[in-house]
Design a binder for these strands. Structure first.
Length: 259
DNA sequence: ATGGTCGCCATGCGA
């Protein structure tokens, strides 16, 4: 079973690339972030033609998340319960698997803009609410996967130029502590369960030829609860779509589970 | 030292 995540930076613009990628990579589950479209504009028929079901939480212009799956999803949750937020960043679903139900959460964590800004404070508050909610979700669902754009590079190994990035948004200590608090719940960063190429990243700024220079960060992650981490056989980043014309600034991340 | 690119939608803003 393959689970994947991809921040597409506008599903309107990226739909053909997402469809191409799914045809070449027929994963069981694909979590999408930054749809940037209203609910009524979600292109469900295009995904149905490829044999996928879909659930989504959209809004005009900003944010927006979706879960595509081979099997129909149940028990849908939109947003972090008890965290009032007009920004559509969270979608949780339950999916069947040979090992029993799988809880899949698609997350588009706040960017934070700049350390010390209002958006940075919102990011840290949001992470705290996420941790509290995931703690409860883990009690309910032993097989939990949280996939998405976390907007945090967990360690300096996830940063192309740690000296220049030190203390900046996406790598600052409070953000890393907020991310580590998710791992402390018992979730594993599936990418780090395996040997990986040095300088592996999932996001490259559109500016300054960042992709050509591999000047990136690893901020898209697949976190797995212990039973799923034990079943995880591989995790990798597919850089190919980032080299497309009109690419998203993020690459897909894929985890392979033996369930 | 500064600005650089996208996508939104028509202007600056968010990333």
């Amino acid at each position: 079973m393959k689970l994947a995540t991809w921040n597409v930076n506008s599903l309107n613009v990226r739909l053909p690339q997402v469809l191409d990628w799914l045809r070449a990579n027929p994963v069981d589950v694909l979590c999408l972030q930054e749809l940037k479209l209203a609910d009524e504009k979600f292109p469900l028929p295009a995904f149905q033609e490829l044999g996928y079901h879909a659930e989504w939480a959209g809004q005009k212009t900003y944010n927006g998340v979706a879960v595509l799956s081979r099997e129909p999803a149940g028990d849908k949750v939109r947003g972090i319960p008890s965290f009032e937020d007009p920004q559509q960043r969270i979608l949780g679903v339950t999916l069947p698997s040979p090992a029993g139900d799988l809880r899949v959460i698609c997350a588009y964590c706040p960017n934070g803009q700049a350390v010390g800004s209002d958006k940075y404070a919102y990011k840290l508050r949001w992470y705290e609410a996420l941790r509290d909610w995931l703690s409860a979700e883990l009690d309910l669902h032993p097989r939990l996967a949280v996939l998405g754009d976390y907007n945090v590079a967990p360690t300096d190994a996830d940063v192309h130029n740690p000296e220049r990035w030190a203390g900046q948004v996406l790598v600052s200590e409070p953000e890393r502590a907020a991310f580590d608090a998710l791992l402390d719940l018992g979730l594993a960063d599936s990418f780090r369960l395996f040997e990986q190429e040095p300088k592996s990243f999932s996001w490259w700024d559109y500016r300054l030829n960042a992709f050509k220079r591999n000047a990136g960060l690893r901020i898209d992650h697949i976190l797995l609860s212990a039973p799923l981490a034990n079943a995880c056989r591989a995790c990798g980043i597919d850089k190919a779509p980032r080299a497309n014309p009109q690419p998203s600034d993020h690459a897909p991340v894929v985890a392979t589970l033996e369930l």
